[in-house]
């Protein structure tokens, strides 16, 4: 057990938390936050597992750097799409019909 492995396990936990939120939350912006949590967890797993026992490793670090920039672009695009969706439909969640019944539990 090295500190790197600890961060890898924390990444696995973040993936789980994010996945739960992604399924459970209704507001699209919250879904986006949960999705970003999954992404951060994945990055931690990638780097933490690769550096377990052999010190800093530039290859997974470079891949994660690329991943972070792509994920911010994806997040920005998702925000544009969500705002457009809100603008056109007036809803912030995909299940517009039962949004009244599901509001209390999820938000």
């Amino acid at each position: 057990m090295t500190p790197s492995l600890l961060y890898a396990f924390a990444g696995a936990g973040l993936c789980g938390i994010g996945m739960f939120g992604f399924i459970q939350l209704r507001h699209l912006l919250r879904k986006l936050l949960a999705f970003n949590l999954i992404g951060s967890g994945t990055f931690l797993v990638l780097v933490g597992l690769a550096q377990h026992g052999q010190g800093p490793d530039a290859v997974p670090q470079a891949l994660v750097l690329t991943g972070i920039v792509v994920s911010i672009a994806a997040t920005a695009l998702a925000i544009v799409l969500i705002r457009r969706y809100f603008h056109l439909s007036g809803h912030t969640s995909l299940e517009a019909d039962d949004s009244d019944s599901g509001q209390g539990g999820a938000e």
């Binding site: 500190p3 933490g48 550096q51 800093p56 670090q61 470079a62 750097l65 920039v69």
Partner: peptide, 15 residues
């Protein structure tokens, strides 16, 4: 901060 602890200053800067 976690990236700094993982000795990845590049990712820390970007993050």
């Amino acid at each position: 901060v976690a990236w700094v602890r993982l000795q990845a200053p590049d990712i820390a800067l970007a993050e």
